[in-house]
Design a protein around this nucleic acid. Sequence first.
DNA 1: TTTATTATTGCAACACAGTCGCAATAATAT
DNA 2: ATATTATTGCGACTGTGTTGCAATAATAAA
Lengths: 124, 124
Amino acid sequence: MERRKTQSTEEILSTLKDTDFALSHKMIQQRLSIEVDRATIYRVLNRFLEDGIVHRVISENGKQYFALCEDCERNDHHHNHFHFRCNKCGKVECLAREVDIQLPAGYTAENINSLVTGICASCR
Amino acid sequence: MERRKTQSTEEILSTLKDTDFALSHKMIQQRLSIEVDRATIYRVLNRFLEDGIVHRVISENGKQYFALCEDCERNDHHHNHFHFRCNKCGKVECLAREVDIQLPAGYTAENINSLVTGICASCR
DNA sequence: TTTATTATTGCAACACAGTCGCAATAATAT
DNA sequence: ATATTATTGCGACTGTGTTGCAATAATAAA
Ligand SMILES: [Mn+2]
Ligand SMILES: [Mn+2]
Ligand SMILES: [Zn+2]
Ligand SMILES: [Zn+2]
């Protein structure tokens, strides 16, 4: 189960590093300098997820967006921040503000997905 | 563009009324006492959305869930509440707690989709 | 360096959610 | 009873994401 350093993984990783917002699978594919199969991109991203290198947001358009983890460690993640998708430029940003989860008694949280859509500052 | 009262719309509406949590298209189909085509269910739900009768949540499983609007009026909606999806029973509930959106300067909100997953009280 | 091991890839096929065009049906108005 | 047209069912389609399998290539061992 060891991980191998391949051209695909390196390319995808550096694409994520070069971008300050979250990317969908398709956005990633378009930014790659080499051609990588769709399935491979998904597999690489899912491996990154497992390894805690990236986190994933689901937008209300049904798509998955991936962004590098900032201050996460392997087993201590904190992705309880808001996300914002601009309806004009399509960018999905990680916002600084955290979501404070206050669930009813007896409820346990495992994952949070908070996304606000609207118009971003650059598009306004 | 007037709306007609049909067996399908009545059935779907009463199904939503009978349930205190949000339903996916498939859950609705299974609860109907008559057979209604998939496409029709989607069209009815989208009409309900337009009319402000229901609101929609997107889960991180990529599916849409629909729930009756509680205190909404045609043009004054407030669906900025949290939702919770139980990983065991699959129920998607509307939580009472509201999401307070504080966006960066220059950002405008149009829609909010906040969903927490985990285990609900009945399943724990 | 050569060989063996196996993680990763590409391709095709698949599953599934949601949408759409179109002709048939049925709810409402006349 | 007739006309109008919103709604339906069906099939076809789109798009996202996953999976099986054989081929490829990264790493370890010889
Ligand atoms: Mn984020
Ligand atoms: Mn709700
Ligand atoms: Zn924008
Ligand atoms: Zn539950």
